[in-house]
């Protein structure tokens, strides 16, 4: 029983780690950002998952409903999503400038070019 209860978390962890892997293992700057996105998005799922109460409903007060899911993580994640997109926007802007300056968006090529400087 407990095992099944945790299964959700495990899948989330796999998701997180996939994102994390993309960030650190890939050379392409855009793909790194994508990885960051996935990494963060899975953390969001993690929060939302823990907010769920069995048999609960969305936390919008209404007559006759007793059990609601926990609203606090929802709030936190709303914030976090926006933070995430802000980071993405900045990261992409930097990628564009890097592409202008170096002519490539592959990390190892950039490094090679920097070493020449």
């Amino acid at each position: 029983m407990e095992f099944l209860g945790l299964l959700n978390y495990w899948i989330i962890i796999v998701l997180m780690m996939t994102g994390f892997y993309i960030v650190i293992a890939h050379n392409n700057l855009v793909k790194k950002i994508v990885g960051l996105n996935i990494f963060q998005a899975s953390v969001f799922v993690f929060y939302i998952t823990m907010a769920k109460v069995k048999g609960g409903t969305a936390p919008i007060l209404a007559e006759g409903i007793e059990v609601y899911s926990n609203p606090l993580p929802h709030v936190l994640i709303l914030t976090a999503i926006v933070v995430g997109v802000a980071t993405t926007a900045l990261g992409l802007a930097l990628v564009i400038r890097i592409r202008d300056a170096y002519g490539t968006i592959e990390d190892d090529e950039i490094e090679a070019r920097e070493n020449e400087l």
């Binding site: 960030v23 963060q40 823990m50 993580p73 930097l94 300056a101 950039i110």
Partner: peptide, 30 residues
């Protein structure tokens, strides 16, 4: 021009750091 890549790398590492922090906070909250 290396400022750009410096900023980018900082962004990636900083965001990873922030995300780790958030995971930790989430677990504490849990």
């Amino acid at each position: 021009q290396r400022a750009l890549t410096a900023a980018y790398r900082y962004l990636v590492m900083g965001t990873i750091g922030a995300t780790f922090y958030i995971i930790g906070v989430g677990m504490m909250y849990m």
